[in-house]
Write a protein that binds this DNA or RNA. Structure first.
Length: 345
DNA sequence: GAACAGAAAAC
DNA sequence: CCTCCTTTCTGTTC
């Protein structure tokens, strides 16, 4: 299996688009609009990483680390179009392709080493962007290989190296193990994947749930999932945004929700899909996420208004929660194809 | 089995 | 001090 991962994607795109920034620190930012520099770093180039800037870091803190750095707003539409170009190149070279995010792909091909090299070159020729390719037997191994080789790298792992690399990795380097699972595993004395071996599978399932528990058990004994899922369609569309200030005022919150709903509907319109469920998202002052949703017996389209439901769901939330609201969002899910007919079911 | 809410993760 | 988007899983309730 191949794993193709674009190097510091958004920031690299900005480097290519603005050659005058060559060799400077470039950080692509998500500005929240609360204050001048509120928001976080999305992606930063290696010059920026060298001085300690990381993705997820508040923009204000990053600016302290790089007085002369270039801090640009994310231009998602443009990054998406480049992602599509790359997607086309990969698909024309591989037998099976899974696009796992805007800048990452898993793929199968006849001769994977040769194909990987060719893809790297074709991407460079047509976009001027570098990427890193990992080749291994499993999905996890391919991903670990590209992680290890980046940036602008190429790494092939045979079965034995693949197993060793995974076995000796700290658990938090494994895709699927985040901060919570890491902490819980560390408490059990598990630091690396190899420490998982020998743990009782029923204890793992009891502690981490059926799915994760069984997956961790298999990981420990060297069984890695390898399926490629060629899904194309998205299952939901959502928009989230920050309020100017934390508040509980219905008018202010509603105004933002309506604005976000309009944006999410644009996506919906573009996809020509209908939805069965509307969800409002609330992030309170303590950064906890809450949701309120309503499903409809008949799928709704881009034309229908949800104002009544939005007001009702919002009131329901505020009546049961006394914290202030920091951010809000709207989500359309349960997407279905409708082609004009409303009597599909 | 659907609806709803929340947790966790990846990006 | 704290952005945005999507997926997957789990528990609960009806």
């Amino acid at each position: 299996m191949l794993h193709i991962d674009m190097d510091y994607f958004f920031a690299q795109i900005e480097e290519i688009r603005n050659p005058e920034y060559k060799n400077k620190i470039i950080a692509v930012c998500i500005f929240s609009g609360r204050t001048e520099d509120s928001g976080v770093i999305s992606t930063v180039n290696y010059e920026g990483r060298n001085v300690g800037i990381k993705s997820g870091m508040p923009i204000v803190n990053a600016k302290k680390l790089a007085k002369s750095g270039i801090f640009l707003p994310a231009d998602h539409k443009y990054y998406e179009s480049i992602s599509q170009t790359i997607d086309g190149l990969i698909r024309s070279n591989c037998t099976k392709v899974e696009k796992s995010s805007i800048d990452e792909w898993y793929a199968l091909a006849e001769d994977e080493v040769e194909t990987g090299k060719r893809i790297k070159l074709e991407i460079l020729n047509s976009t001027n962007l570098t990427c890193t390719v990992g080749v291994a037997h499993s999905r996890l191994g391919a991903k670990m290989a590209s992680d290890k080789a980046k940036p602008n790298g190429f790494l092939i792992l045979g079965k034995e190296k693949e197993r060793n690399l995974i076995d000796n990795s700290p658990v938090e380097k494994i895709i699927g193990i985040g901060p919570k699972t890491k902490d819980e595993l560390n408490e059990l004395g598990v630091k690396t994947v190899s420490d998982l071996r020998g743990l009782n599978q029923f204890i793992l399932i009891e502690k981490f749930g059926k799915k994760t528990g069984a997956w961790l058990y298999n990981l420990g004994i060297g069984i890695y999932d390898s399926e490629i899922e060629e899904r194309i369609e998205k299952g939901e569309f959502s928009r989230i945004g920050s309020l100017k200030e934390n508040t509980r005022e219905k008018g202010k919150i509603l105004e933002k929700i309506v604005e976000l709903e309009r944006e999410a509907k644009e996506e919906l319109k573009y996809s020509k899909k209908f939805y069965k469920t509307l969800t409002l998202i609330f992030i309170t002052e303590d950064i906890k996420m809450h949701t309120k949703s309503r499903s409809f017996s008949k799928p709704r389209g881009e034309k229908e208004t949800n104002l009544d439901e939005i007001k009702k769901l919002m009131s329901e939330f505020l009546d049961n929660e006394r914290k202030e609201v920091r951010r809000v969002g709207v989500k359309f899910s349960g997407l279905v194809e409708m082609d004009g007919q409303t009597t599909l079911f």
